[in-house]
Amino acid sequence: MEAFLVSTGIVALAEIGDKTQLLAFLLAARFRKPLPICLGIFIATVVNHAFAGALGAWITSQLSPMTLRWVLGIGFVAMAGWIFVPDKIDEEEESGAKLKLGVLGTTIVAFFMAEMGDKTQIATVALAARFDSLVAVVAGTTLGMMLANVPAVLLGEKLAGRVPVRLVHGLAALIFAVLGVLTLLGAGQRLGV
């Protein structure tokens, strides 16, 4: 349950103001069809985060507990700093929205591409390596994505101006930093410390 709750919270907070949330706003404004957009976000997130989680689980099997502890600890601390780097939607990702795939297909392709190498994808890799529950991590990160992006789709730009993005990013960075420090200090029985 801890893996699910931590994954949900971290991704929901980290996603506020992220490029995929900006993409959700753009898709909602362009297509004005919230149900297929939300379904597309869900499908793209499950597939992307399942791959990321599997990579994290594989990394766990390849590294010694001590090496894994240092890699994860430093990675979580780095994620805390990365949270403050502003995102924008790249031209390459915008071009995915020009495909003739319909609303659902366009959303799936655009979101899947936007998540490649994104903060939340990297967080999913790290969380899957940290916790011994791939399903709980992927379910949690997916729920976190949905918690951040469904309101963006449903409420559009009206919501964007009212969310204190710096505060939310600060909370997400704090959680990543605490996880990093705790991991470096050896917290967590699964890491062999």
Results as ranks from 00 to 15, higher is better:
residue 109 V to W: 07
residue 18 D to I: 06
residue 17 G to F: 06
residue 172 A to I: 09
residue 59 I to T: 11
residue 160 A to H: 15
residue 15 E to M: 11
residue 108 I to Y: 02
residue 126 A to I: 13
residue 16 I to H: 02
residue 165 V to S: 01
residue 85 V to N: 08
residue 130 R to L: 13
residue 29 A to S: 15
residue 26 L to F: 14
residue 152 A to Y: 02
residue 154 L to H: 07
residue 102 G to I: 04
residue 49 H to E: 03
residue 75 G to K: 09
residue 110 A to W: 09
residue 25 F to A: 03
residue 111 F to Q: 02
residue 167 L to D: 05
residue 24 A to N: 04
residue 42 F to M: 02
residue 87 D to N: 15
residue 67 T to R: 14
residue 96 G to R: 15
residue 76 F to I: 05
residue 46 V to W: 04
residue 48 N to T: 12
residue 164 P to E: 11
residue 4 F to T: 06
residue 139 A to K: 08
residue 65 P to L: 00
residue 181 V to P: 00
residue 107 T to R: 06
residue 32 R to Y: 04
residue 101 L to D: 04
residue 152 A to F: 01
residue 72 L to S: 13
residue 15 E to Q: 12
residue 20 T to R: 06
residue 83 I to T: 08
residue 32 R to G: 05
residue 12 A to V: 05
residue 8 T to L: 14
residue 190 R to Y: 12
residue 94 E to P: 00
residue 22 L to E: 11
residue 4 F to C: 08
residue 44 A to S: 10
residue 86 P to M: 05
residue 100 K to D: 13
residue 170 G to L: 01
residue 166 R to K: 14
residue 35 L to Q: 09
residue 181 V to L: 10
residue 168 V to F: 07
residue 95 S to E: 12
residue 117 G to M: 07
residue 34 P to F: 00
residue 74 I to N: 14
